[in-house]
Design a protein around this nucleic acid. Structure first.
Length: 84
DNA sequence: GTTGAGCGTT
């Protein structure tokens, strides 16, 4: 299993690679992705990062929430369920 | 060549 983290208020120019690079120093990132518009492929301004360690995930949230990336103040928290 | 609240698409 892995812990899913929500990252909001991203700049439209921030991509998945940048997300992974941001979280990588705080733990092992199993996957990172910026959610894009299905039709245009443009960023929707938020994304998700999966961490292999729940503990590292929470530390990453604490360390990165509110920090600045690409001119935007990041809103980071545990992700909600994708589907029900 | 745009925009700004948000918890997702293969």
């Amino acid at each position: 299993m892995s812990t899913n983290v929500y990252v909001g208020n991203l700049s439209f120019s921030t991509d998945s690679a940048a997300l992974r690079a941001l979280f990588a120093p705080h733990g092992e990132v199993s996957s990172a992705q910026v959610v894009q518009d299905r039709e245009t492929g443009r960023s929707r301004g938020f994304g998700f990062v999966e961490m292999t360690s729940a503990d590292e995930a929470q530390q990453a949230i604490a360390a990165l929430n509110g920090t600045n990336l690409d001119g935007r103040q990041l809103t980071i928290s545990l992700a909600r369920a994708r589907a029900k």
